[in-house]
Design a protein around this nucleic acid. Sequence first.
DNA 1: TATATTATATCATATATATGAATTTCCACT
DNA 2: AGTGGAAATTCATATATATGATATAATATA
Lengths: 257, 257
Amino acid sequence: MSITDLQFNIDRDSKTPMWLQIRNELFNCLYRDELRPGQLIPNEKTLVDLFRVSIGTVRKAVGALEKEGFLIRKQGLGTFVFQHDKSTFHFAYFHFALNGTDEISYPEVEFISFETKKATKYEAKILNIPAGSNVYEIFNKLGINKKNYIVDKIIISQAKFPTLTEEIFINRTNTIYNLYQNKFNIFITNCSEKLKAMSADKTVSALLNIKLDSPILRIERIGQTYHNETIELRTSFVHTNDIDYVNTQNSTFGDTF
Amino acid sequence: MSITDLQFNIDRDSKTPMWLQIRNELFNCLYRDELRPGQLIPNEKTLVDLFRVSIGTVRKAVGALEKEGFLIRKQGLGTFVFQHDKSTFHFAYFHFALNGTDEISYPEVEFISFETKKATKYEAKILNIPAGSNVYEIFNKLGINKKNYIVDKIIISQAKFPTLTEEIFINRTNTIYNLYQNKFNIFITNCSEKLKAMSADKTVSALLNIKLDSPILRIERIGQTYHNETIELRTSFVHTNDIDYVNTQNSTFGDTF
DNA sequence: TATATTATATCATATATATGAATTTCCACT
DNA sequence: AGTGGAAATTCATATATATGATATAATATA
């Protein structure tokens, strides 16, 4: 069943503009996995025939999804579905630069542990699963230039990753989000982070080789997929003496426009 | 001298698309202050005649500047130059939410002090001014719901704000960026923030009424205007027990697309 | 076989035009 | 003076079409 066999209903009298209706139909194809990460989508002419609109309208719809980051257009080649990848990973979800620089490099990741446990009340609430459900708790250390600055704790629901094992996790050859996407059909579409300053506890100070009670940055990141379904709770503990969390806002953009 | 009297040169044979040339010409009008914050820009028909292109090309150029946040289009009214304002301030440069909420509210600002001093080496480097130049050092306390969580230190070059006084600063009726924009013709176009965890020193702990050496978040924010000219160095010291620094990234956008 | 050329597919830019939607302005009417 | 509705202004959507730029595939040539 190809996308070109599907029937699309565009209501020409709707108050919703046609380009937005088309954008939404295509978005639903992404959500329903009829268009998969990395896949080439039908060319503009085909979409024109599918939706029975002019090419300008199709281009506006595809352009919207491109701006949102779901599609990637390549002149001369075609339009592709975005996929999480080492090459596209760059800084979308990693924000650290060495002191005095603005360069955000790809971190080195060192595996620590992979356990199955019962979700705490808080974890269950965030992940929207029954209290006491099984979750995986995965620890990693992240570093730059051979020095570790970050301890990462990942909590994900076992129910959503039923076949995940420590081996699969360790032997992945790409990013964690790429693993979610390719092995479990879960596509992380947005992340939200909350930062606090805290004191390092025994575990973290030992792992990062710093003094107990050193000030550290704690980042709680919630990774979601389509329709704001929360998939991952990731907590990072960061020793920020040599690195900074960098947040750049270009131009006058706010959240309000 | 109105913008409609200006001569614009669009090179139809350039490898740069015409819409981008027009976008750049309009951007330069903003930069050169020929189009001022809040001002209505010429309507699309006028721009069509000015640049001698079709309306689609004009709309693409204006649309680009709108996406960048420099212009705001209002159907039925016209297109306006963005201005910093309490109503547009919302969260572009303020990122804090009370624990357990995602709501970012407008902070309460309490003035502490306004001094003229010599720039430190570091401040001079960041502001790109001679070492030892005069700068204003302004302290504020920021709070939410009548409780102060943030101490803010602003450093700006006296040379760029020659007529600024404590009275003018205190008696402003709008945001600080609005003051820069309306009284000094300096328009902040982008901000970059670097975050670290630290221990509260004597001054900060006293101002925030917390224990000496409590872990705090330090935010170093650099505010720039057109062409990355640095205007402001703002350092915030934040007690994060009750509030979080929130950073939300919608969809799959990274910095790499 | 290796290289240069040509053809093809696909997205990008640009024009011209028509109609619709949102907002303000103005004027007739009470 | 106040109200309601028509007119004017401006941006938004949509169609139809032509040409250009870019990348790949196929073909011809040395």
